[in-house]
């Protein structure tokens, strides 16, 4: 059995939609795990400090991205920067924002308390937190539920009607093993193709536009890559933690209705164990299992 902390119908205002410098939309996976981690830190020094959060599922129920479409390409809708001391507007940094409604399920380790004091504590704590730099506007009361990993519907009914993001990194990996570079491997799955055939009678036949892989495949930001060695330098947020310059890492993912999973772990995102290399990643095993089942 899994212990799940369920936070239903959280509405988030002005969350960061610039999930990477290549993508716009659903906040990066690091932001959701970051939220889980921040919540974990709130337990320190309380009677719930033994409870450990080990993974997170996010079901997106609703989302509005603040962009404006003029022609083919959309533009970001910005907020005006504050004026400087001369009363002028400083140069622009484009920030993309979105409003979201999500249900979040956090996998917990260690015994829960019998009563609902933990859920009520989380209710109170959430009001003082942010998610993906956005403000939490409202949510429904949190619940503790016990679910069987192989009976996903005991959980997914609470995540409806929404879409869960899972990793499809294996798709891109395959293309790269076949010789594509990372950009081509990604665009291959994002492009829409229409087959055109013109026969001798001048009849034009167009196929339905299609993509290479079935399912709602999107690029997703899943972590960071260090681009300098860990060390100390000036102007860091604190002086003791090892610092590195880094960049966003993006791969392919898929938004799926929660009913389509065989078990709960397929939806779950966790921090990937750090291997003392350059990669700081969030991982999800959906992609891996799909690979195996094909074999």
């Amino acid at each position: 059995m899994k212990d799940i902390l369920l936070i239903p119908n959280i509405k988030i205002h002005n969350a960061n939609a610039l999930s990477s410098p290549y993508t716009i939309g659903f906040p990066a996976m690091t932001a959701w795990l970051g939220f889980m981690h921040a919540l974990q830190r709130r337990l320190v020094g309380t009677k719930f400090s033994d409870i450990k959060f080990t993974g997170v599922i996010v079901s997106c129920l609703d989302m509005t991205l603040h962009t404006h479409k003029v022609n083919y390409v959309s533009s970001i809708i910005g907020t005006s920067n504050p004026l400087d001391k001369t009363g002028k507007r400083p140069s622009f940094i484009e920030e993309a924002r979105c409003d979201l409604e999500v249900s979040i399920a956090i996998e917990c380790e260690m015994g829960f308390l019998g009563d609902d004091s933990f859920a009520r504590f989380i209710d109170k704590t959430l009001h003082m937190m942010k998610i993906a730099s956005g403000d939490i506007i409202s949510f429904k009361p949190c619940q503790h539920i016990e679910v069987d990993n192989n009976e996903p519907r005991t959980l997914t009914r609470y995540l409806m009607p929404g879409f869960c993001l899972v990793s499809r990194q294996a798709l891109m990996q395959q293309s790269m093993q076949d010789g594509s570079d990372a950009i081509d491997a990604m665009l291959e799955y994002l492009k829409t193709t229409t087959d055109i055939e013109i026969d001798e009678h001048k009849q034009v036949k167009k196929s339905k536009p299609y993509k290479k892989e079935k399912g709602w495949i999107v690029p997703i930001a899943v972590g960071y890559q260090g681009i300098s060695e860990p060390g100390k330098l000036a102007n860091t947020r604190d002086e003791t933690t090892p610092h590195r310059f880094a960049e966003s890492v993006v791969t392919l993912g898929e938004f799926k209705m929660p009913y389509h999973f065989d078990n709960i772990d397929q939806m779950m995102w966790r921090y990937q164990e750090y291997n003392k290399d350059d990669l700081y990643l969030c991982c999800n095993n959906y992609s891996i299992n799909q690979q195996e089942s094909k074999l």
């Binding site: 003029v70 022609n71 533009s75 970001i76 809708i77 910005g78 907020t79 005006s80 409003d99």
Partner: peptide, 28 residues
Amino acid sequence: ELVLDKSNSKEKKSKILFDVDGVAAMHS
């Protein structure tokens, strides 16, 4: 709305108001 439009399209709207799911609104 402050649209960061970089095109010079003729269809460009000169005033775009803010809505939340189609309902007129005031920015937070």
